[in-house]
Design a binder for these strands. Structure first.
Length: 604
RNA sequence: CGGGAUGUAGCGCAGCCUGGUUAGCGCGUUUGACUGGGGGUCAAAAGGUCGAGAGUUCGAAUCUCUCCAUCCCGACCA
């Protein structure tokens, strides 16, 4: 057993040799329930919608302090610490070095990168007592560039990776879902520095593997890595790690075989559109029919045979006319990326009229291309004889054909994928899933290092910006995601690797002297053996204790009662499994050590 | 930022429409007794600026106004 084995510490300068049980080197958790801070609650909190939120509150893992701001109680903190330690091990294994950067940062640093201006209200800005502008760090690219540019000067020092496990603050517009979307949270953020793109890419692969290790070791059984939109982080390549769960905020499309998987923001499909010989353009009367559904029903066609007009305004007040087949929705992320604009909003009726169009009956036909930018989705370009607006109240056109009626239009793919659309690789119907983003990795390149003078001298003595990658994991979000993926109706079922304790002792009828003395001794012996043990010494009714134990979700359970003591034994069971074994008192510690070892082995 | 809802004991809620002694209920908490293998029973007790402020009224948890907070949907989201 690892924590019983001896280890020798050697201090050469003094020639002292110590022999200690290895468990003295690691913090181990143990507690008696009568003293455990954090109560269990029988009823679901009113505002909780998802399982993890309910169990986190009901089990006494965390308490809300303000919107999206939580205190962790001992149970939650124990788990968080184990999650952090697993992350540390994996980061150290890919040559990471732990550092700690400040939560509070000065404005100047963020002005260097340009993000003081470009990031919106989620960056919390404030003044210190001298009136100096400060902010709360929501991510640490600026801080790490500040650190590295003074410490790293030479190619000989590269590559290098530093990481921290630190509080982040993002002034989210709408925190929700318990620990999944919060304002203040703990995050591991790592930053790697390289001479070349090749070196970054090689390291990026290692980080990807490291992340897969981490999520497996946390006991997450359904995590996928998908290529993602880099958003305002910039950079060429990025991946999101998604814990598949109904509670997730992101929508993912996957082919059944798993060959293709993508966030809805960037997902595409091998759509096939129908085309037939063009018919004559024909104006038809469609009184008060302004939506696709109404027009299609009125004319007796399917939405697939219509074209939909959507107007957007970018941040410079430019109007953009988008046309897409009636049964599709515009994917704004794709459109934004294509237009290279940071912001898009729906245009209002007044703006649409000003451009010479008619809301509800808008059409690209007759709209001057010089007056307004017209972008057309492939679904319209490759279909024929569609119903489209006529730019006139109560009228639509039948048999709109893009190549004939609007030649030279900008044609791109901006449709949102739908469940069942054909996979772009295999052609199989795509499945739609929800996911919680529990980690992400980015190839940043020189986006920050260039602006922030984070340079090194190459082997020719030339100064160059360092090529960077960054890698994040949210600790609390992972805790919640494990609950989402591992629970039953009574509470979480913690994997041994991150369980708040390894064993839960339930003493039944503790008023009986025999039960009390044996339980106390077992608790003491387990502590001495380095087993992480939670001991329910409260003398509650059996059912009450078991329900609490289920909410705490400790993997192994030992029950001591007058009945079991008649045969000098205890009952032993596993969380999530009603089967119980009778084990003699003499061998219970050995049995448990074996089980803990076997379980921990699965998460190595 | 837009739409909707809610604030009453530690937690979950009733009371408000139709103003009127001392503001209730369940869970939890404390004390005692019984009980003892899936949230047990009985008895007693503690616990409230009814979100805040202003107003109407002889009288406001209840009606009016303002503000604050929280939650849901949307917008937003390195």
């Amino acid at each position: 057993m690892c924590f019983l084995s001896k280890c020798y510490l050697y201090f050469p300068e003094r020639f002292y040799i110590y022999s200690v049980n290895i468990h003295f080197l690691y913090l181990r958790f143990f507690m008696r329930m009568s003293k455990l801070v954090g109560r269990r609650i029988k009823e679901d909190p009113r505002d909780a919608q998802i399982i993890s939120h309910k169990f986190i509150i009901r089990g006494g893992y965390a308490r809300p302090v303000s919107t999206g701001i939580y205190s962790l109680l001992p149970l939650g903190k124990n788990i968080a610490k184990k999650i952090e330690d697993i992350i540390r091990e994996e980061m150290n294994a890919i040559d990471g070095q732990e550092v700690l950067m400040p939560v509070v940062l000065p404005r100047e640093l963020w002005e260097e990168s340009g993000r003081y201006e470009s990031v919106g209200g989620e960056l919390l800005r404030f003044k210190d007592r001298n009136g100096k502008d400060m902010l709360l760090g929501m991510t640490h690219e600026e801080a790490v560039c500040h650190l590295i540019r003074t410490e790293i000067n030479s190619y000989k020092q590269l590559p290098v990776m530093v990481y921290q496990i630190q509080t982040k603050y993002r002034d989210e517009a709408r925190p929700r879902a318990g620990l999944i979307r919060v304002r203040e949270f703990t995050m591991k953020d790592a930053y790697s520095f390289h001479e070349s793109q090749e070196c970054l890419e090689k390291y990026y692969e290692k980080a990807h593997q490291s992340y897969e290790n981490i999520f497996r070791r946390l006991g997450m059984n359904n995590v996928v890595s998908i290529k993602s939109d880099s958003g305002m982080m910039g950079g060429a390549v990025s991946h999101e790690f998604m814990a598949i769960s109904e509670a997730g905020e992101d929508t993912i499309f996957m082919s059944p075989c798993g060959k293709y998987k993508a966030n809805r923001e960037v997902a595409t499909a091998a759509w096939k559109f129908f085309s037939e010989p063009s018919k004559e353009l024909e104006k038809v009367y469609t009184p008060d029919k302004t939506t696709i559904e109404e027009v299609a029903a009125f004319l007796g066609v399917k939405p697939e045979h219509t074209g939909k007009a959507v107007f957007y305004v970018d941040n410079n007040e430019n109007l953009i006319f988008v046309m897409i087949r009636g049964d599709f929705e515009v994917n704004e992320t794709k459109l934004r990326n294509y237009l290279k604009t940071p912001q898009l909003n729906f245009a209002n009726d007044e703006q649409i009229r000003k451009a010479g169009s008619v809301p509800g009956y808008a059409s690209p036909v007759g709209l001057g291309k010089n007056k307004i930018r017209i972008v057309v989705d492939k679904s319209v370009a490759e279909s024929s004889n569609l119903v489209a607006g006529a730019n006139e109240e109560h009228y639509h056109f039948k048999n709109f054909n893009l190549s004939r009626d609007l030649p030279g239009a900008e044609i791109i793919e901006i449709a949102t994928v739908r469940a069942g659309d054909p996979c772009p690789i295999t052609g199989a119907p795509l499945e739609e899933k929800r996911g919680i983003e529990i980690g992400n990795i980015f190839q940043l390149g020189t986006k920050y290092s260039e602006k922030m003078n984070c340079n090194y001298l190459d082997n020719n003595g030339k100064s160059k910006p360092i090529i960077m990658g960054c890698y994040g994991i949210g600790v609390g979000r992972n805790l919640a995601s494990v609950i989402e993926q591992s629970h039953d109706e009574y509470g979480p079922i913690w994997p041994m690797s991150i369980a708040p304790y390894h064993v839960h002792i339930c003493a039944l009828n503790i008023k009986e002297e025999n039960v009390k003395s044996v339980s106390e001794k077992l608790y003491a012996d387990m502590k001495a053996a380095g087993i992480e043990v939670l001991y329910d010494d409260r003398g509650e009714k059996a059912g009450f204790m078991f329900n609490d134990a289920d909410l705490i979700g400790v993997p192994l359970r030992v029950i001591i009662s007058p009945k079991t003591l008649e045969t000098n034994s205890v009952e032993f069971s596993t969380r999530g499994n009603k089967d119980k074994q009778i084990i003699s008192l003499a061998s219970i510690i050995e049995t448990i050590e074996g089980r803990i070892k076997d379980e921990l082995e699965k998460y190595k």
